[in-house]
Amino acid sequence: MPSYRARFDATVTFTNGGGLQADGFLVDVPSADVTSAEVGELFLDSLGLLMAGEVRLDNLEIVEAAHKGTRGGPSAEGRSDGKPSYVELSHVIRDGMLTLPGLPGPELGKQLTREASREIYAPGTTFEIGLITMVTNTGTYMDSPYHRYADGHDLTGFSLERTADLPAVVVRLEDSGRLGIDTAALATYDVRGKAVLLHTGDDARFGTPEYVENPHFLTRDGAEWLIANGAVLVGIDAANIDDMTDGTRPAHSLLLGADIAIVEHLTNLAEVPPTGATFTATAPRVAGLGTFPVRAYARTS
């Protein structure tokens, strides 16, 4: 179902004197036919304003856009039939696909063909056994501490409690006008105990050389803020969680040093509500590997 936001200019007078003006303010709204009075209430709730008197809205426009989690705004609604709803967040792995320039694409083949299996099994019974050769940084994948640190644990070190059914918060950044995701972009979110999913919109370029041109990334202070505020997993739909021009890789170094799982190259985050969903990304229990593709998905109801 489509979601909507209201854009408007606002003038507020306070009962104890003074006033406030806002230009081009945006809030999430429950539907396209929301009233001006309802938008005004959402505006006040979003800022936590007390002792507000008259609220006047000008240039009110309702636009179809993904919700960004306005405080006091509409919550994510589940399916009317009561059945769980899921959103796929992983890229499909295909033969020869491009994840990042410079990394070889996967090669898919067959260890046992159906034709050859006819010589092994009873008449009418055939099997196929596939074969894949790939670098572990293929498609949508998870990083464990061993990816960065020789003494860090590998993929087997993450319990299911650390990577499955995590409450999720989606940080909308695709129209922020900035590539670096810093503390200012994160500070309004409650991330404690949550999977923090950074929605940049860069996944629209996945599989092309342009994917690595001016990608979004998490800054050092953004990573420090997420650690200090208790995030348990961080995902992003961009080419790298780090600024790829910075060889020190501060986001990887800090998050993995704090034993926080990283999931890179997510997709479809626009389909996940800002709050209320759960996130799962689990990798095979392969000993001695620091990264591996995952099946990542959100449950929205």
Rank of each mutant, 00 (worst) to 15 (best):
R178W: 13
L179C: 05
L179I: 13
T183G: 01
A184L: 14
A184D: 14
A184P: 10
L186C: 00
Y189K: 04
Y189R: 06
D190T: 12
K194P: 07
L197I: 03
L198D: 04
L198I: 03
T200A: 01
T200N: 03
D202P: 03
D203A: 12
D203Y: 05
A204E: 10
G207F: 08
G207L: 10
Y211D: 01
Y211W: 00
Y211R: 00
V212M: 14
E213G: 07
N214F: 11
N214I: 13
P215T: 12
P215E: 11
P215F: 13
H216C: 06
H216G: 08
H216A: 09
H216E: 02
F217L: 10
F217Y: 14
F217H: 12
T219K: 00
D221M: 06
D221P: 08
G222D: 02
A223F: 15
E224C: 08
W225K: 05
W225H: 08
L226W: 00
I227H: 01
I227A: 04
I227T: 09
A228D: 08
A228S: 07
A228P: 03
N229M: 02
V232A: 08
V232H: 10
L233Q: 02
L233W: 00
V234K: 01
G235F: 07
I236H: 02
D237L: 09
D237Y: 11
A238H: 08
A238Y: 06
A239H: 05
